[in-house]
Design a binder for these strands. Structure first.
Lengths: 345, 345
DNA sequence: CTGAAAGCGCTTACAG
DNA sequence: CTGAAAGCGCTTACAG
C-alpha cells in the first residue's frame, strides 16, 4: 500500500508536471506538442509516456489565452429544432470537427438583439469566427453590428449592406426550376407562397419563379404572391387565402418546408387533396417529404455542402487569408415526386 | 484630427484599461463586475461609462483559466440532423441559455471512441459538465470511461453499470400505453419493432408493451419482436419481414420515429395502407407525424422537458450540490391520430 | 473596504 | 537547438 490507492479527484496534470517527469523544460514539451520541433526518438517516447502516465490534457483556456484564439467557432442560428437548420448544423459540425474546430451553439430564436449579442462573443475573442444564419437580413442594425467583424461568414441568407462573405443556395435557380416544372406540367394558374419580402433568399426564389413565368410569354397567370415569415403559420394563412380564391390556382410553389407544413395542415383539414386537387412544389426538402400524402415534389437545398463550405471559408478567414468577400451560390436540385399533377391543355 | 479617426482593429480593451480609465484598481472593477461589492453610485456609473466607452468585454479564456471553470457545458449527441436529437438539443440549448451556460456541440455519430474522447474535454476542464446522449449504453468501455466524471448527466438513455444521474422518458409507460391502445382497438395479432436489445430505452418500451399484452390474459399474440438499431434501415428490414408473415399482424408498435420512417417507406412501395391494412403506433413524435399518410398515432416523448431537466441537474452538479445520482423518468403521452384502425371482434 | 501581487497553465520571443 | 522568463487577462487570498 505505497500510495497505490487510486487517489480520487487528483489535481490535473499540467505541462510542468510532464516536463518534470521527463526532465525537460516546459518549453521543450510545449514545442514538441505544437511545432513538432524535431526531437530524438528516445525523448519523444519519454514525453509520450509521461503524458499517458499522468493523463495529461492541455488546458484549452490557458492555450486560448496565450494564443489569443480558441479554435472554436460559433454557429449563430435561429432554432436548431427546425429540421432545415438542424441539417445545416449537422453539415457545419461535421466540417468543423474535420478542421479541428469546436462548435459553440448560438441560438437566436430569430431575435436581432440576440444575434448582435453573439457578435460580441467574437469581438470578445470567445470564438475565432462566426457562422451567421439569420432571417433578419433586412434589419439595418445587423449590418451595422457586423461592421469590423472580419471572421464572419453569412450562411443561407445574406444581410443587406453587409460585405461579409456569404454562402447560399441558388434560390433564383430554385424558383426557376419550380416554376418551369409547374408550367411544363400544364399549369396556367399558379400561386406563390414564400418567405419575407425583405430577405434575399426569398427574393431569389420569387425572382426565379417570375422568370419562369415570364418565359411562358403571358400564357401563365400568377394568381397570388403571398409573402410572409418562414413559418407554418404563414402557410396556414396562405392556404386559407388561396382556398378562398375564385377560381382557385391549380398549382402552388411553396418556397419553404416550414411553410408547406402549415399549408398541408389546412388542406388536410379542408379535404383538399394535394396532387389531385391542387399541385404543390416545395422548397428545402429536408423533412421526410417522400412520406407525405402525397410525396412532395420539391427543390432540394444542398444543406450539407452549405455547411461545409461555410466552415471552409471561415477557417480561411481565421487563418488570415483575406479572400475577397464574395457570395457563393450552391446549386439546388428538383426532386420529382407525386404532388404535381400533369394537366391536359 | 486628434486621433479621432476610427482606428480599425484596435487592441481589445482589458480590465486594466477600464480600471485606468476610472482611476480604480483592476481588483475593484473585477469585484464590481462579479461579486457586486457595494460601491457608491457615482463610482459604478464611472465604471459603466468606461466599459461602454472602451467597449470592454471580459476575456472568457482568462476568466476560465483563473476560475478553473468555463461556464460552458457540452452536449454529447449522436447526430443533430436526426429530428429527435435536434429537438432534444433545442430544449437543452434553451435551458442552458437561461442558466448562463454556453453550449458546445459534441457530435459522436454514435461512435464510442468519440464519446469517450469528449469525456476528455470534461477532465481537461474544457467544459464544466456534460450532457451525454448515447445509443451505446451497453458498451462496457463507456461505463469505465465515465468513472470519476462527476458532472455528467445521462440523457435519454442510460449506460449499463454507470452511476451518473439520468434523465429519461418513461419508456415502460410508453410501451404499455402503445400496447394497451392497440389491444383496446381490438387488435389480437401484434408485432413489435424497436431499438437495440441492449439499450434500456429499448428494453423499457418492449417491457411495457409486454406488460400490456400480459394484461390481456393470453388473448393477444405477439407475432414478432424485431429489435435493431434506431435507424430507418432497421425499419425497412422489419417491414419486409412483417409483410412476409402469414398471416400478417394487424398492428405494429414501432418504438421510434426513425424506425417508422423506414417502415413506412416500404409499406408505401408495397401498396400497404397504414390504418386500413395495418395499424401502427409510433414512438417519439417529433417529426410532423400529423402530416403523414395517414397521420400517425404515437407516444410523444417530453423532449423539451428532458433537455431542461438535464441542464438543471448538470448545473446542480457543477455547483457542487451532490444530489443522489437518481434516475428520473419523465412521463410520456399517447397522441391519437389515424393510424390505428378499430377492429370488430 | 481597498489595492498590490500571486497565480491559473499555457506559448514564444529572447538570450545563451 | 534549448531553457528561463515574460506575458496572455482575469480572480482572489492576503496584507494594509
Amino acid at each position: 500500500m505505497t500510495g497505490k490507492q487510486d487517489e480520487p479527484a487528483r489535481r490535473n496534470a499540467t505541462l510542468k508536471d510532464v516536463a518534470a517527469a521527463c526532465g525537460l523544460s516546459v518549453a521543450a514539451v510545449s514545442r514538441y506538442l505544437n511545432h513538432s520541433i524535431k526531437l530524438p526518438r528516445a525523448t519523444t517516447d519519454r514525453i509520450d509516456a509521461a503524458i499517458r502516465e499522468l493523463r495529461y490534457q492541455p488546458n484549452p483556456h490557458a492555450r486560448s489565452l496565450s494564443l489569443g484564439r480558441s479554435e472554436t467557432i460559433g454557429l449563430v442560428i435561429p432554432d436548431i429544432a427546425n429540421p432545415y437548420f438542424a441539417h445545416l448544423a449537422a453539415g457545419v459540425e461535421r466540417a468543423a470537427a474535420e478542421f479541428g474546430l469546436g462548435l459553440l451553439l448560438c441560438p437566436t430564436l430569430s431575435r436581432t438583439d440576440r444575434e448582435i449579442d453573439y457578435l460580441g462573443r467574437l469581438s470578445g475573442r470567445h470564438v475565432d469566427g462566426l457562422l451567421f444564419v439569420t432571417n433578419n437580413g433586412d434589419d439595418p442594425a445587423l449590418a451595422l453590428a457586423l461592421k469590423g467583424s472580419d471572421t464572419v461568414v453569412l450562411v443561407d441568407d445574406d444581410i443587406d449592406g453587409a460585405t461579409a462573405p456569404t454562402i447560399m443556395a441558388d434560390s433564383d435557380q430554385g424558383g426557376f426550376l419550380a416554376g418551369s416544372h409547374l408550367i411544363e406540367n400544364g399549369h396556367r394558374r399558379i400561386a406563390y407562397v414564400g418567405g419575407p419580402a425583405g430577405l434575399s433568399s426569398s427574393r431569389g426564389r420569387l425572382g426565379g419563379f417570375r422568370r419562369a413565368i415570364a418565359k411562358a410569354n403571358g400564357s401563365v397567370t400568377v394568381v397570388a404572391e403571398l409573402q410572409g415569415p418562414y413559418s407554418s403559420e404563414h402557410g396556414r394563412n396562405a392556404a386559407n387565402q388561396l382556398l378562398a380564391l375564385e377560381p382557385r390556382p391549380t398549382a402552388i410553389f411553396v418556397a419553404s418546408d416550414e411553410i408547406v407544413l402549415g399549408l398541408l395542415t389546412v388542406f388536410k383539414q379542408q379535404g383538399v387533396k394535394v396532387g389531385a386537387d391542387i399541385s404543390v412544389v416545395a422548397f428545402d426538402d429536408v423533412g421526410p417529404l417522400e412520406l407525405f400524402d402525397p410525396p412532395l415534389t420539391a427543390i432540394r437545398q444542398p444543406v450539407a455542402a452549405l455547411g461545409r463550405r461555410a466552415v471552409e471559408r471561415v477557417f480561411s478567414l481565421i487563418k488570415g487569408d483575406s479572400l475577397a468577400p464574395v457570395t457563393e451560390l450552391l446549386p439546388v436540385e428538383l426532386i420529382i415526386r407525386s404532388s404535381v399533377k400533369p394537366l391536359h391543355r
